[in-house]
Design a protein around this nucleic acid. Sequence first.
DNA 1: GTGAAAGCGCTAACAC
DNA 2: GTGTTAGCGCTTTCAC
Lengths: 345, 345
Amino acid sequence: MPASRVTLADVARRAGVSRTTASFVMSDRTDMRISDEARQRVLAVAEELGYRPNLTARGLRTTVTRTIGLISDTIATTQFAGEVIHGALDTALAHDHLLFVVETSDDPAVEQRLIEGMLDRQVDALVYATMYTRVATPPPALDGRRVVLLNSLDETFDGPRVLPDELAGGRNAAAALVRAGHTDGIYSIGGRHLIPATPDGAWAGRLRMQGAEEVLAEAGLELSGTVECAWEAADGYAAVSGLLETGIRPRALICLTDRLTLGVYQALQQAGLRIPEDVSVVSFDDSALASWLRPGLTSVALPHYELGKAAVDLLLNGDQSRAVHRIDMPIRTRQSVAPPAADRS
Amino acid sequence: MPASRVTLADVARRAGVSRTTASFVMSDRTDMRISDEARQRVLAVAEELGYRPNLTARGLRTTVTRTIGLISDTIATTQFAGEVIHGALDTALAHDHLLFVVETSDDPAVEQRLIEGMLDRQVDALVYATMYTRVATPPPALDGRRVVLLNSLDETFDGPRVLPDELAGGRNAAAALVRAGHTDGIYSIGGRHLIPATPDGAWAGRLRMQGAEEVLAEAGLELSGTVECAWEAADGYAAVSGLLETGIRPRALICLTDRLTLGVYQALQQAGLRIPEDVSVVSFDDSALASWLRPGLTSVALPHYELGKAAVDLLLNGDQSRAVHRIDMPIRTRQSVAPPAADRS
DNA sequence: GTGAAAGCGCTAACAC
DNA sequence: GTGTTAGCGCTTTCAC
């Protein structure tokens, strides 16, 4: 016998008050004076009966459902989506909200159906998210709704956006190396992602490299070289193997993703080079992989939890005006960075 | 101006019919005869006005919201949750349902709040999921609700459960090796997870090993040995290093998880052994890692997408009686298994 | 201080 | 074939 069968009217009747009075008590409203005695009685009865307000009924009346929609392009292929959802959910829960979670698979027709489904269920607001940073434009169905963009570079959007602070992330990566005492033989693996498929590079890559180069320059240093390539494991393997074959002996590597670093580790270890004794490695993502690798990989975190959290915070309290909110990319230190050994060349 | 401001009454008025007629047309009901002419008119007006039914209002009246709740213990730490959500969502969408997604972090108080939140919003049914298989018992708040358990070993639950078919999975792993022509030097890395923390091993481990041993026995073969250990990368590294140090030269390895295999790869490659030429490797999980590794790892998939799909299917159409539904664990073939080389001992 | 009554947008008896 | 009417469980104006 579902508990939700207990209605406000039941509570009111049993407490000997009107539904109005019961309603005011249950929603903690003070703009109407209720005798303390009546209030206590209502509360006691509600407790005793296990009364829970029917939020769909309330929503019908008030047009607020305390429910928000989270639209993601993909959720299965990365662990990032899980973190965004987690951050969004924690924050929503803290404000007594719940989340519809939805995945479009980048199919506009699916997206349309899902958005309609959420709108039909009267969501109060929506976060429009992508799992990697790119230009993602919310469809017209979202016009006029309370929306925040997560990870989107869409400059035309007239509302708040949350983005990882990639420039600061790049600075953090280089700073870890500088702090450890590295001065030369520092290479970037992955670089700006300047490959035929993305001739302009990737937004994240450009900013990370800019940040890293700034920090090096401030220390009077510079990169010894950059291998521009895509950011998959195989690319990392090929990049470092290639470097080593030309006789280059790097002392520190800035790798653009953890996946890429997986290949880098294999190439390094295959060449008999030890991490971090012979070469230090910093990476980006701080994915689960970073902790699985041996030695543990020091990595600059993509702050997906915080992105989800910030997006929902903005939806619930924040200013709805056009603005970009940059979220910190903290470095997670493990064992892959060490001071350079005395020169053995 | 939100489109949902168009109401059924608006449509009815504009089409010159009563709300009843409009309602029957919109919900495609045939138990009342409506003139074809009226039906067309209503449909046309609805289309023109962009009418969308308010599902919370409908839910208030009918007590069905076409919304289901997905309760997970964790969603951020693995990519599995994403796959469960994906499977559940696809299936829900196919039936015009939406999903509340919620994460308890194994905190009963949080779980209670979240469940109440979903119940207050009148969800029709719920899936109670854990990300790894274990005994998980739904709290009393769920009593009397339409629920299916995903990944739970709770024998006391009086309803449907969906579980990976680990026994068949174990058979698939061993079969891949037998098919490739392996006859000896086959070792299990990880085994039943017989470590001090889990003296009885793990459910999945026991079944996988049982399945593997069955298949080997059917081929007149047997395992040359098993290294019982936990299922993390470091354990795989230690296990294989240990094996090699004792002079053992395995020809094929059955590793209990992809993470474990990451360590196994490192130990093998560090010892100069090539995969798959010198040693074949099969694993379990088919996580993203399996495709990142070099060579690509042949792995028996944990069918999280299918688990999510099956759970929602059961909720929506299925028989609600006590039953265990076992989901296939197909093997994903990559490059890590090959016929054994001619003996070089 | 409290209650009667109306109505949110919808469905469903029942009457015509 | 179609319309009238009465709610679903809640909030809220307004009168007492």
